[in-house]
């Protein structure tokens, strides 16, 4: 009885249907717990959390240096005053890329090459921001004080939008950025 204390010893092992279900459930849990290590070694999409501590001011200075060295143009977002004008930067294939999230833009815009692998250093200057690459729907966290390194290989061409998906104040839903893949 579920509401009264049990006075006789009650321990006995599972049997019958319950034992069958327990077996199925344990097997399924085993499959799921192998999937993550399997994908870590053999799968292509992983979040390893590679990161280094950094002062926001230092990260901004490094990003400006990166922009000055690789700038190829200017991007003006149609109808989004918050984003304003941002430089378009084309990093050398296989190189380091610096990307800042701040209220309320992703800085700078990037031009990448299909099939090349980049080390994208992601950080935030003021509040936490959410790197959400659309329409692919890939999501990573950008946190002030941390240089979050994503080793990323664009495999499809086109224009992609970075949406902010971590609440960062009143302009949050208008905070966007751009990645062009050629």
């Amino acid at each position: 009885m579920s509401l009264r204390p049990l006075t006789a010893p009650w321990f006995h092992g599972p049997a019958g249907h319950e034992k069958i279900w327990l077996g199925c459930a344990i097997l399924w849990c085993f499959v799921m717990s192998l999937m993550m290590p399997y994908w870590h070694f053999r799968g292509k999409q992983n979040s390893t959390g590679e990161a280094y501590t950094v002062k926001p001011a230092d990260f901004l200075a490094r990003t400006e240096k990166f922009v000055a060295a690789n700038r190829v143009g200017t991007y003006k977002h149609p109808g989004n005053a918050l984003l304003g004008e941002v430089p378009i930067v084309e990093p050398p294939p296989g190189g380091d890329v610096y990307l800042i999230g701040r209220m309320w833009q992703w800085y700078p815009a990037l031009r990448l090459r299909q099939g090349e692998t980049y080390r994208i250093h992601l950080s935030a200057l003021d509040l936490q921001h959410g790197f959400s690459l659309q329409p692919l729907n890939m999501n990573f966290q950008a946190v002030p004080g941390y240089d979050h390194v994503l080793t990323l290989t664009p495999t499809s061409k086109g224009e992609f939008t970075i949406v902010c998906n971590e609440f960062c104040g009143i302009g949050h839903s208008s905070m966007t950025g751009k990645i062009f893949v050629e």
């Binding site: 993550m36 994908w39 999409q45 959400s132 999501n139 990573f140 966290q141 998906n165």
Partner: peptide
């Protein structure tokens, strides 16, 4: 862990 990449904060 990995599937969270296509779900986090959505």
């Amino acid at each position: 862990q990995q599937i969270n990449i296509i779900a986090h904060n959505t």
